[in-house]
């Protein structure tokens, strides 16, 4: 895995969590530019990426990963870890090709949940004239829980 953050403390925090999860090989990069070099050397299985960094931002890096012919794996899952929390920022990250989004502060539970998501429920990929990356619609066909909305609708209709 590759952890990209310009803040050394955040890198240590995320790396500590990943090591405790049992991840054996973790590379770190302190900038988008450095990450671009490291990911071509190590071809990581998952990238945990900060958004706001000096020089190449996290968004720029995701776009390079998805579209640059030199990227070793354009399908690599990218988890964006950021202090940005607005829906507009989530939309921007999604449109750049991010698979999953974590709003800081980071927690063990959220990190586990996003990792399980990219491993167990990967999104299909889409290529259009203007976009390449994970499908921006969540898959609905895998949902196996109770259809609460349908039940509520039925209930409302009965009343």
């Amino acid at each position: 895995m590759l952890v990209v953050d310009d803040n050394v403390h955040m890198r240590k925090l995320v790396t500590t969590i990943l090591q405790a999860f049992g991840v054996l090989q973790i590379s770190e990069a302190e900038s988008g530019d450095r990450a671009w070099t490291v990911l071509r050397e190590t071809n990581p299985d998952v990238i945990v990426l900060d958004w706001v960094m000096e020089g190449m931002s996290g968004l720029d890096l995701v776009q390079m990963i998805r579209t640059n012919p030199q990227a070793p794996n354009p399908f690599v899952p990218v988890i964006m870890l950021t202090g940005h929390t607005s829906l507009e920022h989530v939309r921007q990250a999604r449109d750049a090709g991010v698979n999953e989004f974590i709003a800081k502060p980071v927690s063990v539970k959220t990190m586990m949940s996003r990792l399980v998501s990219v491993i167990e429920q990967p999104r299909p990929y889409v290529r259009t004239g203007v976009y390449f990356g994970p499908c921006r619609r969540r898959r609905l066909e895998d949902f196996r829980g109770p259809e609460r909305r349908t039940e509520k609708t039925k209930q409302a209709a009965a009343e």
Binding site: L13, I17, A20, G22, K109, M112, V116
Partner: peptide, 19 residues
């Protein structure tokens, strides 16, 4: 089967406590 690994989460929480 995969899914949430509770033992791994407990290890991570313990590591966070140490940090």
């Amino acid at each position: 089967k995969g899914g949430i690994d509770l033992a791994a989460m407990e290890r991570a929480e313990a590591a966070m406590e140490e940090l």
